[in-house]
Nucleic acid binder design. Structure first.
Lengths: 338, 338
DNA sequence: ACAATTATTTCAAACGTTTGAAATGCCGCG
DNA sequence: CGCGGCATTTCAAACGTTTGAAATAATTGT
């Protein structure tokens, strides 16, 4: 059953006693080819399960029909969900998608970028690692004319590039506003790694909501952490250190961080624990299993972010959008009350 | 800064006023090429950031250097984690990985398989959808000499193929044994979709553990569900319907299912809820945030499953293992007490 | 019947790389 | 001076496809 001679145009041509180009054109439905010939060729192709060799086509067309995605990891459902959006449109257009995880390490990001460059991907979608300050490894792509769309993570301000980002300011603003609406006066903000630009934006959303509602800003109600549990505990201890300004509500950078915070407060039987109202970014599916779920979540619509990224990328590939005419697309968040 | 003439061997050859083959051989360090020439070529290649065109090489070598993975979804951390293992070894060997999700739909699986076939992947790793009974779309690969490794999900018994599977019997057995050790007599088994062969194996592990410890098997203590929450509730209602045989412990097919079950029991304030001891397959990272976590989890070691799958696949690609000499690799589970 | 059209097929080059075979240049030695 | 032998380079074909130009076959009109 295993066939050793590969089924190529040449193979079909020999079988049919016609030239390779006739076969090629028949399969591609050229108008100059006789209908009867087309029928014969197409039948033969079907019978022998002919599939055109992509490498050959890619070589000819100087394309790879591959789109690269570089992102920190797939355990964060934000990224996993964002891929949904990308995949759907990419595969519908006949592109394959190669995903590379960096685990937020710059070295791995560079390695992945170089490998994708060598694979001559037709476009790149990237959520940069939290340590990416230099973009040489990514600028290579644009130098070769390969479009790059930055998504989910905002690169440094002065970099000219295409971006698709969540409206993290708005999400943070609405969460804070929602808590204010529920009569909280002491609302804490637990930020994420400062290297991730969103940390800033979310903080801004937070203070702007406070300002717009005449709630005084208290510096002691703001603390920063990263994805490390120990650091989150330290941050929480700081937030709750001033009895004068004990928070009754909390906006957190990311839900897993919030969960760590809540778990800690519960474990030390903190008096505020029971009445605290918290909101985090993410809207994790797992929330439904928590016995005291956060009052609400900020849904970042990752599928929409991914979808916008791939659509923009495809437009750039098809040159419907000028490569140097940098776009910035913002996807709104949505507050989901639990 | 954007270069329009691509940097190819020909380009370098013209710059250096030598033939294309000399350039090629110099870059590939042929011994017949003069050392000085090599140096000149390599310098020039570096200066112009020459990267060999993969499509051309693939065409020449009749390879794609791509490995396909087809799996149900990426939201299940089992699969996400299994990819870790695969990616690591694949990229170290210079292979790119294309992941396709089927959402457990046969139609999508077929579509993905056909697309990967067209892309002429060098090998395929697949966790079949729960509806896959016919394997024609996958046998195509082997007919073309492309190795396929089935992993994570066990295809129908009489299919001759390479498999890498978790030792789901052993995991189920140990979980049940563990509960017996904790003096439970009424241990329920909540199975998953019957179409997934693991459902059987896990059930077998369960009854074998019962038998080996002289615990009578009670048919009413077994129920089946799928990933749908409503069905899980129905199953739980069935399990708890006989007051004579009310379970005090539970082994569940998968943790999300277990979580749904626990949530339901809590919501109806079931008297057994507080003292029930449960174990599910998965060892989900979020367990730590549950206020009453399951007593233990069955860790399926997905990274190891993925690692074994890719290693076997690479051996098949390199023909270190005969394509028709079908392998079966079993990866043990580990009981993790919380 | 034969040129003029039109329909259909084939030729040949190109995409970028690899590689065995052939060619070239160079050296020393008889 | 010429030739064997070596080092080095180049030739040419191949991988499988596409495509404009050229060639051939079929049809029409006169």
């Amino acid at each position: 059953m295993i066939r050793n001679t590969p089924v190529t145009l040449k193979f079909l041509a020999e079988k049919l006693k016609m030239s390779v180009s006739t076969v090629s054109k028949a399969l591609n439905d050229y108008p100059t080819i006789n209908e009867y010939t087309k029928k014969r060729v197409q039948e033969m192709a079907r019978d022998f399960h002919f599939t055109p060799n992509k490498s050959a086509i890619n070589l000819k067309e100087r394309k790879s029909r591959i789109i690269g995605i570089i992102l920190p990891n797939l355990l964060d459902h934000f990224f996993t969900r964002s891929i949904y959006g990308v995949e759907q449109f990419a595969t519908a257009r006949g592109y394959n998608v190669i995903i590379r995880q960096t685990h937020d390490e710059l070295a791995k990001e560079i390695q992945a970028a170089n490998m994708l460059l060598k694979s001559r991907v037709d476009g790149l979608i990237i959520a940069i690692s939290k340590n990416t300050k230099d973009f040489a490894h990514l600028e290579q792509f644009e130098n070769m004319g390969t479009p790059v769309v930055y998504y989910a993570r905002n690169p440094s301000f002065n970099l000219n590039c295409h971006k698709v980002l969540g409206n993290t300011f708005q999400g943070s603003y609405e969460a804070t506003k929602f808590l204010i609406g529920r009569k909280h006066q002491k609302i804490a903000y637990l930020g994420g790694p400062k290297m991730i630009s969103f940390s800033h934006d979310r903080f801004n959303g937070y203070i702007n909501a406070l300002k717009d509602h005449q709630i005084p800003f208290v510096a002691g109600l703001v603390a920063y952490t990263d994805f490390d549990k120990e650091n989150t505990i330290l941050a929480i201890q700081k937030l709750f250190s001033d009895p004068e300004n004990r928070p009754t509500a909390l906006v957190a950078f990311k839900e897993p961080i919030l969960f760590d915070a809540i778990k800690y407060l519960r474990s030390i039987h903190h008096p505020s624990f029971a009445e605290m109202e918290c909101i985090g970014f993410g809207n994790n599916a797992f929330i439904t299993y928590l016995d005291v779920p956060p009052v609400a979540s900020i849904e970042e619509n990752p599928e929409a972010v991914g979808e916008n990224a791939i659509k923009l990328l495809l437009q750039l590939i098809d040159q419907e959008v000028e490569l140097l005419h940098y776009q910035k697309i913002i996807v709104d968040c949505k507050l989901v009350v639990h």
